Every structure is written in C-alpha cells, then in structure tokens.
Amino acid sequence: MKSNAGPGEEARVRVDLGARSYDILIGPGRIAEAGAQIAQRLPDAQVAIITDETVAGLHLDTLGESLSAAGIKAVPIILPAGERTKSFEHLMQACDAVLDARLERGDAVVALGGGVIGDLTGFVAGIVRRGMHYVQVPTSLLAQVDSSVGGKTGINTGHGKNLVGVFHQPELVLADTDVLDTLSEREFRAGYAEVAKYGLIDRPEFFAWLEDNWREVFSGGAARVEAIATSCQAKADVVAADERESGHRALLNLGHTFGHALEAATGYDSRRLVHGEGVAIGVVLAHEFSARMNHASPDDARRVAEHLRAVGLPTSIHDIDGELPPPDILMEHIAQDKKVKRGKLTFILTRGIGQSFIADDVPQSEVLGFLKEKYTQ
C-alpha cells in the first residue's frame, strides 16, 4: 500500500472544498506548532480553547504555551469528560463562555480533545455570532481519523446521537501522534475501529494491510502515521465529493446505524460501551445483515469479526456488559437515526470487503428479525 507519510513520519492531507479547503497536518509535536500554524492562517485572531478535564491536565499547557509564543491570546473553557457532555446544557455553557470572553466573529474556537469535545466545539463555532472560525486539535485516534474531519458537528438528545447540529468546516486540523501515547489501550482500540472502517468501505487493500500491520499501528511510528493519513485521505475524498451527506458521504456511516442504536440503548454509558466499540460491533452486524440479505458471503463477516476481535474489540452485542433493552426497543433507536428518510430505513450494506453501498428502503421487519436472531445466538 502506498504511504501518505513522509520520511520524517509526518503527513499532510488536503480537504478540497474550494475557498473553504483546509489542511490536516499529521505527525509528532503538532500541538507545539499550533500557535504558529494558527497565526499563519488567522492573523490577529484571539481564541477560546474548549477542552475537558482529562485532556486539560495532559495537553492544555503545551497548547497554551504554543499560542502565547505566537502572540495569540487564549481563554480556556474546561468541560467535564465523557459522552454526556454532548448536551444542550454544556453547549450553552460553552457558548456563554465564548461570549463572556468577548470573542468576535473573526476570532476562533479551538477544540482540544476527542470526538465529544470536537463535535461540541464545532457546533459552538457554527452558531455563536452566526459562525466563527475553529481549529481541531484531536487528541484521540478516533477523533484524528474521523470526527475532526469533514465539518459534522452536534450534540446528543434523549432521542438519539448527534441529532442536533450543523455542518461547519474547520480552518485546520492538527493531528499530533505523540498524544496518542497518553490514551488507554481501550481508547486506542476504539479509534482503530474507525480506521478499519475505511478499508471496509472501499479500500480492500487498506484493510488487508491493516490485517498484516495492525500491531505496528498500535506500537506507533511510521505505520501509525500511515494508517491515520490513509484514513484521513479516504474521508477527505468523500467529503470533497459530498460535503453535506446528500449521497455518497453516507458510506462513511458503515456500521454506525447499528452502533449508534447500541450507544443509545446503553444510555451513552462509556463504562459499558464507547463509540468506537459500538462501531466495531456495528460493522460486523452490517456485514452479517448483508449476508442475511444475500448481498455478501458470510465469510466476509467472519473475516471482519476475526480481525476486530484480534485487536481486542467487541464484535457481538453479547460483548456489551449488562442487559440491553429488547430488540423492538433497539429497533426504535434505529428508526430515529438521521439516515431514515420519510420513515424508510437506509443502511450501509456491503457486497464484500471494501464493497459497501447505500441500501434505501430496507424493510424494518428484516432488521427486527435479524436483531432477534442476534439476541438469541
């Protein structure tokens, strides 16, 4: 597989959106470069840094020193850690803090954290003063390869995940690979589920490469940069072709309809299930459901499950701690998904490894029957 990483274990991926194009800079030490990079793109801007309590203790000082060295005034806004921070309560708290800091439309909001902070911060930047600049500094693998790229922002509600939000593109993404060494093994594995997903969408050679090289990706160095850069390039290509998910971009949701429903069913309790784990189970379910619908071979589903299981990810609903609500309740969560159109279910299914496609009008009865089978197996 061709590498996107340079000889210095660094990479640059361009998200091509015309006048709103931006760079994803990948490699070690990127947080220390943040001040210079932001000053170059947004001269004279002041910033608010939105982060959480965990990440603040690890990386806020490094980012603050970098901004100060570049002459950028920064105000930190520290929120609780965890999926439940993606709420109206914390959205309002962050918006008020940005306004209290008297930041103007030409100033910027910086997201320093994982997917939760990135999604909420992008939403803040999209609505405060009807749109401010923002910069993504993702500190988890999942955020570096997925949520920090593409401009999707949002919060969760009692009805489901990410149902309230806006499309708002960042000015820059700084993916510092050094910070991934501070993640727990569970967090890194959860992010890896999104990496594997890109191979399963339309890059079978990338999935095969991951099967051979996943240990090197976990250990760091050039293989890690290569995996992140390839994932970001895959997403950048899709976003450039379909920014607002009117068609092809929906393929990025492979595994997410099932995964989001499982997250909702566990009450977004990260002790039981985190997003990447939901995606891992979801992509296996998507391949198994594709086999049930005679689109793909059961061997493909087994291959996907074997690889994700090898890296330590859950691959079955029975891998989730505690009881789940019955299948009909899980079906209600699926029916609330953003990919439902006029009540008709849209799933991302597959004809094989790297051969995903958009299936419109999937019968609810087929999905419910499939879920009932999964509960009893």
Rank of each mutant, 00 (worst) to 15 (best):
P80I: 08
V239C: 00
E226H: 13
V135F: 04
A291E: 07
L183M: 15
L163S: 11
L349T: 10
P76L: 05
K73F: 10
Q233C: 05
E104G: 11
L330V: 15
V164P: 03
V145T: 08
A143E: 10
I334E: 05
F167L: 04
G113Q: 02
S3E: 02
H90M: 07
R12P: 00
A125N: 10
V145P: 02
V109P: 06
Q46L: 00
R342I: 06
A250I: 13
A227T: 14
F347Y: 10
Q136F: 08
E277S: 02
A101G: 05
A196G: 01
R105M: 07
A265F: 12
G126V: 03
H287Q: 11
V166H: 10
V13H: 03
L58Y: 13
A94M: 05
D299R: 13
V217L: 09
G57E: 11
V195D: 09
G115F: 14
L91S: 08
L103N: 05
P76W: 06
E263Q: 10
P325E: 03
Q336E: 12
N253Y: 00
D299V: 14
E104D: 06
I49S: 06
L174D: 07
V109R: 08
Q40K: 14
G165A: 08
D107N: 10
K374G: 00
T182L: 08
H333E: 09
G247S: 10
R342T: 15
I26W: 09
P325L: 02
I50W: 11
H159A: 15
A45T: 15
V109Q: 07
M132I: 09
L330Y: 01
V283P: 01
L103W: 02
N294F: 00
I50P: 01
P28W: 03
I329L: 12
G35W: 05
I334H: 00
A11D: 13
E33M: 06
Y192W: 11
L254D: 09
D361H: 08
V279E: 03
A175E: 12
G259T: 04
V217T: 07
I117M: 10
P327I: 06
A101M: 07
R203A: 13
G352L: 09
L262P: 06
T121C: 05
G27D: 13
L324E: 09
T182P: 10
V164A: 14
V238W: 00
A236D: 06
V274H: 04
I155Q: 02
A11F: 12
P80Y: 11
T257E: 08
A301Q: 07
H248C: 04
V116Q: 04
P326E: 13
N4E: 14
A5Y: 11
D212V: 08
A34G: 05
L345C: 02
A234Q: 00
R215C: 00
Y375K: 01
G57L: 11
